[in-house]
Design a protein around this nucleic acid. Structure first.
Lengths: 206, 206
DNA sequence: AGCAATTCGTAACATTTGTTACATGACAAA
DNA sequence: TTTGTCATGTAACAAATGTTACGAATTGCT
């Protein structure tokens, strides 16, 4: 499983071997905390299977979904935090049951120097997340909530690979950092516009 | 001038030499376009002197300030765009009269492979801008306009090194992607709270 | 069936932000 | 000084978003 996922990135076999040696497997259930960068030890999560969510949050409890982490991906936030030794207000939660290969941060620097493929990989991770953050900013500045909500639904469809999104209005409100009532109101509007259809605990994208 | 600025980053002397050979100086006046990533050729701007602003904008004309570029800094957006060959909706405008060393994008990849210090430098640029984008998202999601405006003023004070901000309400509105009337309203509020004092074309931070 | 908990719909209202219109004051050029 | 332009203040209103409250529908459990 690990070999298969790692080989996608064209890592040297020696690097793959090291990653196998040094990392460890973590299995989580949907909804579990994977990493809380405030308190836990610094590790890089490497998604072997499942789906994770990366949030930015405030001390007081408010939070907003930044992006999904799919199979084979890893988290630029974690890397940024590890390298800077900063404790940013980021946490990672499992969206589905997932398997994650955890790599202690102390090996990052070494591997970047030692393995060109790893250096390249980290660079690409930054590129990818940079793009996503730019899209996020775009939505936040230039879109109203209705558009932002719809983009969120499309994004979730993309990440889960399903036209049916099994979430409550409250959960969606949490991910967009707004209130349940507002989400209900806007979803109703989207439904009237025939962009979605709603069932209990489930939104279908048309 | 170039040598002095480049040496801050601990570049190898051979790299400095290459940068001197291949780049070229561009002088701009306050308000000038430095780069429009939609149309112009791909280059990396390296600020020798002055102050630049990096915007994200929409096709229809709306725009928002992402961050300032100070002396010795360069732009992660430009790099991301160059490497991806993407045309992101980014442009760079001079805040003050500035001198910029322009480096054609074709040398980026080469130098990253050839010079460890350059690879490291690019990596650090990403780190730095990542942080700024995270702060921007933080403000957009968790703050109201008044807070966002005040943070903007503090940020500008930081970048310019002056307690006096010589901008009109309209200019500020453009950078925050809102309207002049709203900015006037909120600045009045900040003035009543003794956080700033206002003069014509000038806001003083207290 | 009866009950409790969850989910969703909706109304009524408050607050924030955006828009339009116009008045006032400052400044510079003639 | 006079005139015209620009920057700011402010009112009145519109639209978007947030909040509180409550009722109806669904689900799961006993």
């Amino acid at each position: 499983m690990i070999k298969e996922v790692l080989s996608i990135h064209g890592f040297e076999s020696e690097l793959i071997h090291e990653i196998e040696e040094i990392g460890y497997l973590k299995k989580v259930k949907a909804g579990d905390f994977v990493i809380d960068l405030r308190v836990q030890e610094k590790v890089i999560p490497f998604v072997l299977d499942g789906l994770l969510k990366v949030y930015k949050h405030k001390p007081d409890g408010g939070k907003v979904l930044l992006y999904y982490l799919e199979k084979g991906e890893t988290c630029a936030m974690s890397i940024a935090c590890c390298i800077d030794k900063r404790s940013d207000n980021i946490h990672v939660i499992a969206e589905d049951d997932s398997q994650i290969w955890m790599i202690p941060n102390t090996y990052l620097d070494k591997w970047m120097v030692k393995y060109p493929s790893f250096d390249r990989f980290i660079f690409n991770v930054y590129q990818l997340r940079f793009d996503e953050l730019m899209d996020t900013i775009d939505s936040l500045v230039f879109s109203n909530l209705e558009e932002r909500l719809f983009k969120y639904l499309l994004n979730t469809k993309q990440a889960t690979g399903s036209f049916e999104i099994r979430k409550t209005h409250q959960q969606i409100a949490d991910e967009l950092s707004t209130s349940r009532v507002v989400v209900s109101r806007l979803l109703k509007k989207l439904e009237l516009d025939d962009k979605i259809s709603q069932h209990r605990n489930c939104i279908e994208i048309l």
